[in-house]
Write a protein that binds this DNA or RNA. Structure first.
Lengths: 231, 231
DNA sequence: CGGACTGTTGAGACCCCTCAACCTAAGTGG
DNA sequence: CCACTTAGGTTGAGGGGTCTCAACAGTCCG
């Protein structure tokens, strides 16, 4: 692939931190480029995890489907994030389905390529370890929230997390810069879209947020934090 | 430390899979041995993660305390399991407090020792990666359960997990071979000890389990699976 | 034997889910 | 361009699963 363009895509990716310029070029040469439009699927739950991806542009949602058919959102992936870590963790299938929520570009490495890279550059393995470790901590934080907090607090936490990951300043507030439905938020917080709608309506009446179709603008982030921390 | 005794402790530990006999000896020489009696603490939440442990004997509970003072059980650790993975993941503090629920023996390596081991034996890093990846998957499964399942199913899942980790065959059933209180189960499932008590009482009336003070015997594992899978 | 810990059970309240109807905005096809 | 369809969102009513509060019983331990 085109080295110049690739280098700008991959600059600052945590997974490859510490690599030399030249080595980075070699790593890029082993990558395949995936362009996926909105609503396109990068990989499906339970597929054999044969590729490790790094997102270059866009936004991807990873969600699990329960045997009963309920969706649970695992996480949103932004530029620079690793995607499909199982490919490198020795799992037997992707834990969820990755769907683009905005037009996206990803780089992908086959298992064989990854093995070669890790052998040549051991620091990639330790980088991966610290990324997966971070994900584990986040996941434990979610378990803690689901175990101990009521719905309103959990929704506040979820939205604040989205703000941190994908907040864009607009006049008078911060907007989540990709489409998020009430349903999505309910799947992030273990509740129903009805309850999410009620909570957001209440917040809107209080002037905390401003809603719309798949759109959320946070007007008073500080007050949301107060709800999340139960002050 | 005593090589012969150490070797029997460490044999078959997933973290060191693939190492030669002689190398294993070197790794052992770098370890410190920790003997902790029941209710003793190995490390505390938010302490600087300066040591990576592997449990040799016994059973350790890792639990988080929320700012509001509620406990959440992260997981139970058995012989051979890694403990305190943050030390190797680059975290800033242990995510929870590790308490022995039975008399236990652990081996511990300082951060410096770990760095040396990983440098000499890169496969340790990939082993760690696959262990942490597995933990992440488990944690996501818990998020899914907490998000979509009602309390009775979650309790069934939690108990079946304990059976898999620490089940011991006794006449007519399987017993969890370390003390587990109703409170512990409630902290594993995000509910209250009252609800756990009610559910277990109902199961006991139906002949599925047999209870007691910090004691659980599963009489009909198959029926418990049916509850967990909602059949 | 008293005290602390663990477990059981009842009553009542309330949070949230379920069911349901309706509304609006965005897309679609004639 | 407008009627129609569809997806997403809002809101109300009702019911039920759990939590909270409370009292009490059994068990272990000093």
């Amino acid at each position: 692939m085109d080295r110049e363009r690739g280098r700008s895509l991959i600059a600052g990716v945590p997974l490859f931190r510490g690599l030399e310029e030249a080595d980075m070029g070699d790593v890029l040469d082993a990558a395949r480029r995936y362009e996926i439009g909105r609503d396109a699927v990068l990989f499906r739950q339970d597929d054999a995890p044969d590729t490790l991806y790094v997102l270059a542009h866009g936004r991807v949602k990873v969600s699990q489907l329960t045997p009963e058919g309920q969706q649970v959102v695992i996480r949103y992936i932004g530029p620079g994030d690793m995607l499909g870590c199982v490919a490198v963790c020795g799992g037997t299938g992707y834990p969820g389905t990755a769907t683009a929520v905005a037009d996206s570009v990803a780089l992908g490495w086959s298992q064989a390529a990854i093995r070669g890279i890790v052998q040549r550059f051991p620091s990639v393995a330790t980088n991966a370890l610290s990324i997966v470790g971070g994900r584990l901590q986040e996941s434990l934080a979610r378990v803690r929230e689901l175990s101990t907090e009521k719905v309103e607090r959990r929704i506040a936490h979820a939205i604040l997390r989205l703000v941190r990951q994908a907040g864009r300043r607009v006049d008078g507030g911060v907007q989540i810069d990709f489409p998020v439905s009430r349903q999505d938020i309910s799947e992030m917080t273990g509740t129903t879209l009805h309850t999410v709608s009620r909570v957001l309506s209440a917040w809107e009446h209080r002037g905390l947020v401003e809603g719309g179709r798949q759109r959320i603008v946070i007007l008073k982030p500080h007050d949301l934090v107060a709800i999340a921390e139960d002050l």
